[in-house]
């Protein structure tokens, strides 16, 4: 028996919005520790890694490890039926081929449930090696989304360059070039509004605007985003989901021919 009750169905909806551009379907792995999802997009350019801790749920019970393969467009349809203040309870029997979502309004005046068919997905689990990153940049998630959106107008790629002076996002295209530089801020009492740079080595890497834009769909989940960069390894874009877990995206860089 699997049962997980989340106080805010809106949070799960935001998670779905943040991954459904990249993935058509995905396996949710449920264990005592919580719910995890790890999947590459079809082109094998990006990887989504979601971790929702069991203690972030109001109620969590997982008698046996369970993998639930779901079509994310179908799952979005289900969550479109929930109210913004609803709680959601996710239930599945062991070895079931369906999962049930129950939405409850705050005062119990409306309760709805939706049963969805599960899919058998042949997904491999990947081990992600520990990396000593050259630069770790924390910045407001809204600022990152704004920069990616602005620069995407001009080119297909964004170069992220980090030195001890700050971080620079650059693009070039047919009509010209664009650069946005952010200096480290000293607003330490408001960490989620600050730009914090932890640099071991300067680094400069090129990434696809299209993928970065998809990652910024996670902006409503967190005020802050962390970018971890190192030569010859994927970029990590990490959003902490308050009291619940995290959503990380890995993106292979573009390389000179």
């Amino acid at each position: 028996m699997f049962e997980a009750r989340l106080a805010s169905s809106a949070t799960f909806k935001k998670v779905l919005d943040a991954i459904k551009d990249l993935l058509n379907e995905a396996s949710f792995d449920c264990s005592d520790a919580g719910i995890q999802l790890q999947a590459m997009d079809n082109s094998h350019v990006s990887l989504v890694s979601l971790n929702l801790k069991s203690d972030g749920f109001e109620k969590y019970r997982c008698d046996r490890n369970l993998t639930m393969g779901m079509n994310l467009a179908s799952l979005s349809k289900v969550f479109r039926c929930s109210g913004s203040d609803d709680t959601v309870t996710i239930k599945a029997q062991d070895d079931a081929d369906t999962v049930t979502f129950m939405f409850e309004a705050k005062k119990q005046e409306k309760i709805s449930d939706y049963e969805m068919k599960l899919m058998n997905l042949d997904q491999e689990h990947l081990g992600i090696p520990e990396t000593e990153f050259s630069c770790i940049i924390k910045l407001p998630s809204g600022e990152f989304a704004r920069i990616v959106r602005d620069l995407s107008q001009f080119g297909e790629s964004i170069v992220i360059s980090c030195t001890k002076e700050g971080v620079k996002f650059s693009t070039q295209g047919d009509i010209g070039t664009g650069n946005v530089k952010l200096a480290q801020t000293n607003n330490f009492d408001k960490e989620d509004q600050s730009v914090i740079i932890d640099m071991q080595e300067p680094v400069s890497l090129t990434f696809s605007c299209e993928y970065l834009n998809s990652f910024t769909k996670a902006t409503p989940l967190s005020n802050q985003v962390t970018l971890s960069l190192c030569d010859n390894v994927p970029l990590v874009v990490e959003y902490q989901i308050p009291d619940l877990g995290h959503l990380k995206y890995y993106l292979a860089p573009k390389i000179e021919e």
């Binding site: 350019v45 990947l126 292979a252 021919e257």
Partner: peptide
């Protein structure tokens, strides 16, 4: 010009 690298090879299949 640059080409898009893929993630294969960065991670190990468990």
């Amino acid at each position: 010009t640059s080409t898009q690298a893929r993630l294969d090879g960065f991670f190990t299949v468990l």
